[in-house]
Design a binder for these strands. Sequence first.
DNA 1: CGGTATCCTATGGGATACTG
DNA 2: CAGTATCCCATAGGATACCG
Lengths: 129, 129
Amino acid sequence: MEQGKTNGEVLKKYRVGVEAALEVMGGKWKPLIIYHLFTGRKRSSELRRLIPDITQKMLTTQLRGLEKDEIVQRHVYSEVPPRVEYELTAYGYGLKPALDLLCYWGEDHLDKVYGDKSKVLEKFKSIET
Amino acid sequence: MEQGKTNGEVLKKYRVGVEAALEVMGGKWKPLIIYHLFTGRKRSSELRRLIPDITQKMLTTQLRGLEKDEIVQRHVYSEVPPRVEYELTAYGYGLKPALDLLCYWGEDHLDKVYGDKSKVLEKFKSIET
DNA sequence: CGGTATCCTATGGGATACTG
DNA sequence: CAGTATCCCATAGGATACCG
């Protein structure tokens, strides 16, 4: 238990904390968009190519949400044809550890579901706080 | 980049991994339920008390989902009045590292939104893989 | 006490067409 | 190329009442 806080405060912190995080990166496409931006800024067409199943509308919608939460920054170049690039903020990059852990857990889960041996779980249990 | 895998394979792995994880624990109340179960098995009425805003229906629904994915185990006692307890499986407990990171990031996000200093981010950047 | 069964609505997300 | 505007649908989630 953290110091100087009541159970209720810690509980509330946890609640809004995890909920806030899920609001920010919990959309259907947001984790994937963020993932691709981990490797550097991408223009809109690149993201569409990297995420074939996403529609233009959803790409825009999810990016706007991420922009509002200051996870990504939008760079507009006044050219013809227009060019727009999206870049993770340092703040958004801070989601990487959490997303990576979620990813590894998810892989492990899929292995489990599909009958493979659980092998990723061990790898990260040392990180438990 | 992981060994022996193409970019596509790694990408696909990441995609389904993070999506699978969000399917399992991405519900509105699931993280909160899981959190409370981190501290030990709880009976249904305890969870409702700990999560005042949840309805009976949603508690049952989310718990059934978690049970299906083998995150929680349901223990039924044939008594009068009936008693039912829910317990995290070892497998479900493996979500703790990821949930904790999400929680800390979310707290930091809320501090940021509400004008406080960002102070949790530093704490975990060493975990980045 | 714990759980269903209805019923309802809010909304996240998709398809398509259009614009600067 | 990047984005908006409609229109539409599936479903997650809430309110309420009832059951063993």
